[in-house]
């Protein structure tokens, strides 16, 4: 399916376009953060601690007197990085594992699947917490942990699709003319898996952002003074009674971004794979 046909399908879905607009805004915000943020996100001003939103600081100031709007804008960089890196890890490891497992079958398949079973025996967020507690609590390790958590999701998806694709005549023909297995996987199997992987990845970026914010909130992810949205919520929660704006805006940023990604992911799924339509 070409980019043009996907776009034609997607254009008809107003909610998906709305999601796309949110995602594009989020990406632009992350790229151009230094130019659009009104203030330095690390600049403390204790005399203006937890100052309410005003025309000067539309989102108000946090407990250390930092401009929350600037921190939310810079936070999009962190969340985008988390999303891309962790999904990158999931794809880079999960896709080959799933393809090899599904294509070759036998003992390789058995071993890979049991390993995936063990990883799936933990609820995703719990596994991320376990991994962070092993690796040590910081932003990089949170990204790695979330990446590892998403491996079985890709491996499962790719394996089941590979199983059905490999029965197709074009794969059998390629085998018959003596093409090597790895060549068949890269030339015939993987290109046919692109659609489900794109859909899964869009939704996975949303989950990754939520999980990373959760880890940040628990003190197991990004550490101060990094303007990560979850960590901002955690440090602001003690001021919720007198200065609710401190927790309101970072949370809103998480919700809107994840909402946009979910809308887009749903739209892409409908456009790319009508059978999966919810």
């Amino acid at each position: 399916m070409t980019f043009k046909t996907i776009w034609r399908q997607l254009r008809r879905n107003k909610l998906a376009l709305f999601g796309l607009a949110i995602v594009v805004t989020f990406i632009l915000m992350a790229i151009f953060a230094p130019w659009i943020a009104p203030d330095d996100p690390f600049d403390q001003n204790l005399r203006q601690s937890v100052e309410a939103p005003s025309s000067e600081n539309p989102f108000g100031r946090d407990e250390l007197g930092r401009d929350i709007l600037s921190r939310v804008i810079y936070g999009s960089r962190i969340s985008l990085t988390i999303g891309l890196i962790s999904v990158g890890i999931g794809v880079a490891v999960g896709v080959p594992l799933g393809a090899i497992s599904g294509y070759f079958g036998g003992i390789v398949d058995l071993l890979v699947q049991r390993l995936m079973d063990i990883m799936l025996a933990f609820p995703a967020m719990l596994l991320a917490i376990v991994l962070v507690s092993i690796l040590g609590k910081n932003l990089t390790n949170a990204m790695i942990a979330i990446g590892i958590v998403s491996i079985p999701m890709y491996a499962r998806l790719v394996r089941s699709s590979t199983l059905s694709i490999k029965e197709n005549d074009f794969v059998q023909a390629s085998k018959a003319v003596g093409r090597k297995d790895m060549g068949i996987i890269t030339a015939h199997i993987l290109p046919n898996l692109l659609s489900p992987i794109i859909v899964q990845s869009t939704l996975q970026v949303a989950s990754a952002i939520l999980w990373a914010a959760g880890l940040g909130f628990l003190g197991l992810g990004a550490q101060a003074p990094i303007p990560e949205w979850g960590a901002m919520l955690a440090s602001g929660r003690d001021f919720i009674r007198h200065a609710p704006h401190v927790v309101f805006f970072p949370g809103l940023a998480i919700m809107i971004t994840v909402f946009g990604l979910n809308l887009l992911g749903d739209g892409l799924r409908d456009a790319l794979d009508p059978r999966m339509k919810l």
Binding site: A213, F217, V247, V258, F259, N262, L263
Partner: peptide, 14 residues
């Protein structure tokens, strides 16, 4: 869809 996108800890605080 909003519910799915909501960080549970933020909703809790709200």
């Amino acid at each position: 869809l909003i519910g799915i996108s909501m960080p549970v800890f933020w909703l809790g605080l709200l």
